[in-house]
Nucleic acid binder design. Structure first.
Length: 259
DNA sequence: ATCTATTCCTGGCTGC
DNA sequence: TGCAGCCAGGAATAGA
């Protein structure tokens, strides 16, 4: 489940190797993962590779390739195609594989960044604390599904939502509109902290996430609650609870995290 | 406009 | 040992 830190790690691996390269060919193996005429990328030079929420945005001379990894997607550099290789991008300086077991990922070509992607919410590491606080408190939804909503904030997924809420001591079902300014500000701080640490750790390798060079991250070793149902809370020692909130597995400490 | 539930997809795990 | 059935979840979509 690649989220912001994992996608950032992939983009940082791709940038020095492929900015300035020319795409020679795009071959789609599994049509399900394609959106738009990805073949039109052939012949274009890569001007920039950046991250937009969980999207990898490859800026070309006259278009954009937007790659979303979904749950099990990977972009791999110079590797042998396997059974889950869904597309192959051949460049004058190597090859990129788009592998994805479950095919929730997408590789999309369009002239400009697609509207659906462009109108996602702000970057968690760019939005100011005050802006975040007022944005948050204007919404009535439960805090966890709100943080997962990419039109509210772009880049958080299930892992970093649970980890940030734990650090901020906020219950995942707490109503956004009922949080004090102080607690909303604390959540902003927790989000910035957890994402920054995770990027420094090259992300969390749960499921079988690896970056573009096949390397694992190590932030999973620093998880406090995600995937730790039944284990003692690192803060109070009581068992971490696993429940379902908004159809998502949710991990929290019932004692430390209040509504 | 906002919020919630459902659906897609398949490897791996659980339990009989 | 084999296998049916369930689980994981990002986000598009539909429905309230």
């Amino acid at each position: 489940m690649p989220e912001l830190p994992e996608v950032e790690t992939v983009v940082r691996a791709l940038t020095p190797r492929f900015v300035g390269s020319r795409i020679l060919n795009v071959e789609v193996i599994s049509p399900r993962v394609r959106r738009g005429r990805v073949e039109k990328a052939a012949g274009q030079r890569i001007r920039e590779i950046r991250r937009h929420g969980k999207h990898i945005v490859v800026q070309l001379d006259a278009g954009v390739l937007a790659i979303h990894l979904g749950m099990t997607g990977k972009v791999l550099i110079n590797r042998t195609p396997g059974p889950y290789t869904r597309a192959v991008v051949t460049l004058d300086s190597g090859a990129l594989l788009f592998d994805d077991v479950r095919m929730f990922g997408r590789i999309e070509y369009s002239k400009r960044l697609p509207e659906r992607v462009a109108r996602l919410g702000p970057e968690p590491l760019e939005i100011s604390r005050d802006e975040f606080v007022s944005r948050l408190r204007s919404r009535r939804a439960q805090i966890k599904p709100l943080l997962l909503n990419q039109t509210f904030l772009r880049g958080l997924g299930n892992i970093y939502t649970d980890e940030a809420l734990f650090r901020a001591r906020i219950h995942p079902r707490a109503l956004a509109s009922r949080l004090s300014r102080r607690r909303a500000a604390e959540l902003h701080r927790a989000i910035v902290e957890v994402l920054t640490l995770a990027i420094e750790s090259r992300g969390s390798s749960v499921s079988d996430y690896v970056d573009a060079e096949g390397r694992q991250g190590w932030f999973q070793a620093l998880h406090n609650v995600y995937g730790k149902g039944g284990e003692p809370c690192p803060r109070c020692g009581r068992p971490i609870r696993r429940t379902v909130v908004a159809q998502r597995g949710t991990h929290y400490c019932p004692r430390c995290q209040s509504s």
